[in-house]
């Protein structure tokens, strides 16, 4: 429960901090950190416009998408506390739940019969397919390292001992940051601020959404960031600390993640669309390195 509420709280700040960071780096005054949440609140109460081409799929998809995200956050542990739902292999459920949400967003964008939205849908489907192996290899490596098979058990048994294990931990945190960026369609892959539909991924998929649905999708993006932030902070929450230490570490890492994302978005340009698959797939090879590193730690390489 504590992890769920912490994730919800940090999701309220997350987009605001990213925007604030970008403003500071570009020397603008910029809005307050609560502006994104205020926008979302306004959207949730607005009326909607639906395309006459779309069917019921288009209406149910955003809510289902948000529901998968909310359920997925229930799986995330917090240091000594397991998530609300925890069982062996829960990360498989977690990944497939997120895939379910994506499935609905993809078909809902095809539902509009638009000449642009299918483009985003096609890219989203391909990129999320490419990013998935990295997540599974990472979890596989940690399952091998700790001998356990659930988020909670893996994170509570994770100990960093040797130099290699620090390297492995750092690499894993890096891979998770990149996964979070890709899953949220952020900078090196997709530019949320672009104005050309041809170069969009996520934004072009939701061109037709409005009102409550759009609000849910936008808030879902913040929630997803906070969720990945929580997973990354779990690497650093070790057993036996006082709870307020853990909360501080958690908040610090969420803040750091948001600032890093803001910095990346300020200083990097988006990749060319045809370079994206290579970049995403390189994550898989980095995770394979992590796996080999774990084999090395356990002395299994002969």
């Amino acid at each position: 429960m504590i992890s769920f509420s912490l994730i919800i709280i940090s999701s309220l700040f997350f987009s605001g901090i990213i925007i604030r960071t970008k403003c500071i780096f570009s020397g603008r005054k910029g809005p307050g950190i609560f502006q994104p949440i205020k926008d979302i609140r306004k959207l949730l109460r607005k009326g909607s416009v639906y395309s006459d081409t779309s069917s019921f799929i288009f209406k149910i998809a955003p809510t289902l998408y948000f529901s998968t995200l909310l359920t997925a956050t229930l799986f995330i542990p917090f240091g000594d506390e397991p998530g609300l739902i925890s069982f062996k292999g829960d990360f498989v459920f977690f990944a497939y739940l997120l895939a379910l949400g994506k499935f609905f967003m993809i078909i809902s964008s095809l539902d509009t019969g638009s000449s642009f939205e299918g483009m985003g849908a096609s890219r989203e489907a391909l990129y999320s397919m490419l990013v998935e192996p990295a997540f599974f290899i990472l979890m596989g490596s940690f399952a091998l390292l700790t001998g356990h098979l659930s988020f909670y058990e893996i994170f509570s048994h994770l100990h960093f001992g040797s130099y290699i294990s620090y390297a492995v931990g750092a690499l894993a945190a890096f891979v998770f940051v990149i996964i979070a960026m890709i899953e949220n369609s952020r900078m090196p892959i997709d530019d949320p601020k672009t104005h050309l539909e041809l170069t969009m991924i996520h934004e072009v998929m939701i061109l037709d959404n409005s009102g409550f649905d759009l609000g849910l999708i936008l808030y879902g993006s913040s929630l997803k960031f906070a969720m990945y932030g929580a997973i990354i902070s779990n690497f650093f929450l070790t057993r036996g600390k006082e709870w307020f230490f853990s909360v501080l570490i958690f908040a610090g890492i969420q803040l750091l993640l948001a600032v890093i994302i803001g910095a990346i978005e300020s200083f990097m340009a988006r990749f060319r669309m045809n370079h994206n698959p290579q970049f995403i797939f390189s994550l898989t090879s980095i995770s394979l390195l992590i796996f080999l590193g774990v084999l090395l730690i356990l002395g299994k390489i002969v």
Binding site: S48, I60, S67, T112, D208, F212
Partner: peptide
């Protein structure tokens, strides 16, 4: 969530062609 959607979201619903 569907219940909340029905409850919160405004009743003003319009239809128009897909945004081209």
């Amino acid at each position: 969530l569907f219940g909340i959607r029905k409850w919160i979201s405004s009743k003003i619903i319009a239809t128009s062609p897909t945004w081209g």
